[in-house]
């Protein structure tokens, strides 16, 4: 399945957002996720099904002003 993850194309087997994070080795504890412009909270990732062409954003804490 082809997805856009953080603006980059990926071809993955994962069917859920939870599985996608594991497949792409995003194993950090502090991640925020969004699917097609909507927030997906951490406990909701396992039930969050992915579809062809979905846009996924995976964010993490960084320096900021």
């Amino acid at each position: 399945m082809k997805l856009l993850v953080n603006g980059q194309p990926h071809d993955v087997v994962a069917q859920s957002l939870d599985a996608l994070l594991a497949e792409l080795e995003f194993d950090g504890e502090w991640l925020a996720t969004a699917l097609n412009g909507e927030l997906v909270r951490s406990p909701e990732r396992q039930a969050c099904r992915l579809n062809e062409g979905d846009k996924v954003e995976i964010l993490t804490p960084r320096q900021g002003g």
């Binding site: 953080n6 603006g7 994070l21 792409l24 080795e25 995003f26 194993d27 950090g28 504890e29 502090w30 991640l31 925020a32 954003e57 995976i58 964010l59 993490t60 804490p61 960084r62 320096q63 900021g64 002003g65």
Partner: peptide, 17 residues
């Protein structure tokens, strides 16, 4: 602090945080 895209591996933000 801010939120920015994490690269694969998911650890760079963890260190700062």
């Amino acid at each position: 602090v801010s939120l920015r895209r994490e690269m694969a591996g998911g650890k760079s933000g963890d260190k700062f945080w």
